[in-house]
């Protein structure tokens, strides 16, 4: 799998470090270069969580605004990608906390691939609803791990928790969903 946030090759490391240092000092041109370099990756990560390209664009701007404000605290030696992904995850999480559960996973918005016809639409809807009513922190982890199939390590880094913490949240998400579905008479 192609990494979402690729790191620079060794030849480019000096230039990259220089760029990030200039960004941390508040140089607007350096920020523009960093923005253009990472906007696609940040958007790609956020859209996996919020599943709406329009909202993901807004949250990409919000993420870079938070990044810009926090630039003085940025340590260039630790790389921009992981830092940006963590801020992006927090921005997406904040959005889910306020927008839930109105956000609906419609096919138009989420651009989901064709659905298995074996699943009846009402069951599909119940599963969606059970999923959307999970607490935001569990929902983000479940989306990234179970639906988007991102690695536990990558999710742990983005959420600022341990791999064990990710596993625990996935387990809790599955258990809560099962309980909700059982209450609705669905026992997968």
């Amino acid at each position: 799998m192609k990494p979402l946030f690729p790191t620079a090759s060794k030849e480019d490391e000096g230039d990259e470090m220089d760029l990030l240092e200039r960004f941390a000092q508040g140089e607007l041109e350096a920020f523009e270069t960093v923005f253009r370099q990472f906007q696609g990756e940040v958007f790609g990560w956020i859209v996996r969580i919020v599943r709406d390209p329009g909202i993901a664009e807004d949250l990409t701007i919000e993420t870079f605004w938070r990044i810009y404000r926090a630039r003085a605290r940025f340590d260039p030696s630790r790389g921009f990608g992981p830092w940006a992904r963590r801020i992006a995850t927090n921005a997406a999480l904040d959005h889910l906390k306020t927008a839930r559960p109105e956000v609906s996973l419609t096919e138009d918005q989420a651009q989901v691939p064709p659905i298995d016809p074996a699943i009846q639409s009402d069951i599909r809807e119940q599963i969606e609803q059970a999923f959307l009513h999970l607490p935001a922190k569990l929902q983000v982890v479940a989306r990234l791990a179970l639906i988007e199939q991102q690695s536990y390590e990558e999710i742990a880094q983005a959420m600022g928790i341990s791999v064990g913490g990710v596993k625990s949240r996935v387990f809790r998400a599955v258990r809560q969903m099962r309980r909700k579905l059982k209450r609705l008479g669905i026992e997968p």
């Binding site: 996973l105 989420a110 999923f131 479940a142």
Partner: peptide, 30 residues
Amino acid sequence: KLQELLRNAVGPIADTELKQDLWPRMLGKL
């Protein structure tokens, strides 16, 4: 089985590509 049902019901997002340059909007926000 539950995870498979969830993947089938929700499904991974098909297109994660950014369609436009967001820098002009970022500049506006700044």
